[in-house]
Write a protein that binds this DNA or RNA. Structure first.
Lengths: 192, 192
DNA sequence: TAAAAATATTGACAAGCGTCAATTAAGCGA
DNA sequence: TCGCTTAATTGACGCTTGTCAATATTTTTA
């Protein structure tokens, strides 16, 4: 077997992550104690320190983990030729969100973490700059800024709504929706 | 009188800031306690909580204060006409650094705060995008990214060296040096 | 499957945290 | 200058933190 870590570690981290996400839904990180997380996760408080330095360290590392997965997916879709690449990319991203729904929902929802969203934006930003075919209507550098901010913030908003609404639609359906919104604008989708 | 806050508040905050900067020079934020800061600043521990929620809150707010001053200076130089605007801007920025040498040196030095530097970069980034005259040699959006990263990272490196070296040169001299490096490149300066 | 390795638990510790009411000190405006 | 307002100090409180050695449990390896 492999899968990176010991099964016990995976289990413990999963429990702690779930607990933190639940607590984050109620109050800010600064008001959450290690003891609370351990209690809610039903693990020993000492065990927490076997994995994280403190509560801020835990939050930061969970975010970084997710951003890394996100970044990996984005970068694995290097297709510069056609815009057919967009749908598969979006599908994978929505699937990733679904897998991490609890934590992701808190991070990008209201009371979300601005720093996290900023890092997200930068990942997409690089993607937009690297792939010309997504920048169909762009002329100058100045307009580009507005364009990518529009797309990214819009996508984050859609994702937040999807997560907080209980993920009624499939990742593929969401990917299709967002693809059309990006390529054709909201108006085109509304008419369909 | 005015100056924003009560003289006692200014004094207390100054003492705490100095203490935090000294401690940050020795170890990371996560290893610094409120008690240490209060003791080093020679103020009562309870007084700390009159101003900040916890040690992370203090660090974040000091950074934001400095970034705001930085941003204000950058934005007050809106000159789009000639590159004569660059030197006055740089002079003011170096003067600001000198005023906040202790904290600034820690933040941008080795063991500095990446998040802080990232915010700094974004401020400069906006400036570069807004003012065309700084972007003399830029053609495409792709090159722009490299360009501004080169300038900003370069400037931060120069500032760090200046601060850690005890600020032997005047702000004006540094501004002149950096101005030439930005406009003409390092080669031109080395020949002079 | 048994031994070895890694992980989690337990209970306990000193230290730090965040808060408070009461008091003293300092700055401010009239 | 005097009185009012605001800030800082003091001492104390119960709780949380981060760490530890000893132990139990689970997983991996041989």
């Amino acid at each position: 077997m492999a899968e990176g870590e010991d099964r016990r570690v995976r289990k413990t981290k999963k429990l702690m992550t779930k607990a933190l996400a639940e607590l984050l839904a109620q109050k800010p990180l600064s008001a959450i104690s290690v003891r609370e997380v351990a209690e809610l996760a039903d693990i020993n408080r000492g065990t927490f320190y076997l994995h994280y330095r403190d509560i801020y360290d835990m939050a930061r590392r969970l975010q970084d983990e997710m951003l890394e997965k996100f970044d990996h997916i984005v970068k694995s879709h290097t297709g510069r030729e056609s815009s057919d690449e967009l749908f598969p990319l979006l599908s994978e991203l929505f699937a990733l969100l679904a897998e991490n729904a609890e934590l992701a929902g808190v991070l990008i929802g209201k009371n979300g973490d601005a720093a996290f969203m900023d890092k997200l934006k930068n990942i997409v930003r690089e993607k937009c700059l690297a792939d010309a075919h997504i920048m169909l209507n762009i002329k100058s550098g100045g307009e580009f800024e507005y364009f990518y901010n529009y797309i990214v913030s819009g996508c984050i908003g859609v994702c937040a709504a999807w997560l907080s609404g209980g993920m009624k639609e499939t990742p593929a359906r969401m990917a299709s929706l967002v693809e059309r919104m990006i390529l054709n604008g909201v108006g085109a989708v509304a008419q369909a």
